[in-house]
Write a protein that binds this DNA or RNA. Structure first.
Lengths: 133, 133
DNA sequence: CAATATATTTAGAATTATTCTAAAAAGAGG
DNA sequence: CCTCTTTTTAGAATAATTCTAAATATATTG
């Protein structure tokens, strides 16, 4: 782990804010003023491949990076704003708390398909193992 | 509904394939050879805003468009490949059927935040109402 | 510690998906 | 038909992300 990777992981874990690469870049520059954006992407992708952080695609806005600890998201269909929810919240409390009915949900189950498993076994030693998207 | 919108909706509903804008464009050109890609995006966005189709963001690949009828997705963490699942599948059958353990899941709950609701009430008459992302 | 090998960073160009703009064309309603 | 509104077109613009090649840094081995 390089100093950049370490600091980026720290930033992502500390933030409860689902940061974009750009925001992480800005935060990182306070410590390392000469770092470039590509380095941030390199590290984020490496951390993601290693299963150390999560990457969320939200329609129409840049990817967000998030700590790995299990939790789910409430996404505004208007502006893409994200907030965290835990499973306890889901039971009714959510609707009351938000005072608004859900428009729907989007559930993705993550796995490795045949081809990718074969390719991964064949290719480099291993990677990953228990990562969330 | 224009002929383009109609045909695009038809294509999206007929396909069990989570098509990208590009693929829809290609399919559409067989019927209307002069249509341009921007028209496809225009229509897909209009249909999505009207809640007639779903839009899925998958990390690292273009948005996919999908019929509205309720179902969820199995996403390969390696290559982004999508397949449909229904709730019955989820109960164990899924793991046996796929012969592979899930790496995790990604649940997004869709709603409209305060700001967007206000903006929408203030702004144009209405839109949407029951759309899924 | 030096020498080599491997991995990371940098700078900037390149790519890709998507949106925007302005003008032309197509519908819709009277 | 005529006017008004919406959609399409063509192509430029934008934004996020990845790629490339050279330079650095880090790790490994003799």
């Amino acid at each position: 782990m390089t100093k950049y990777a370490r600091k980026i992981l720290e930033l992502v874990e500390a933030s409860r804010n689902h940061m974009t690469a750009e925001q992480i870049f800005d935060a990182l520059r306070e410590t390392y003023p000469t770092v470039v954006l590509a380095t941030v992407y390199n590290n984020l992708n490496r951390l993601w491949e290693e299963g150390r952080i999560r990457k969320l695609s939200v329609q129409g806005s840049p990817d967000r990076f998030d700590r790995i600890a299990r939790h789910d998201h409430l996404v505004c269909r208007g502006c893409g704003r994200l907030s965290d929810v835990t499973l306890e919240d889901l039971t009714g409390a959510l609707q009351r708390q938000m005072g608004v009915p859900l428009l729907g949900y989007d559930l993705k189950l993550l796995y490795l398909c045949e081809d990718c498993r074969r390719r991964r076994e064949a290719g480099r030693e291993t990677e990953d193992g228990e990562a969330l998207s």
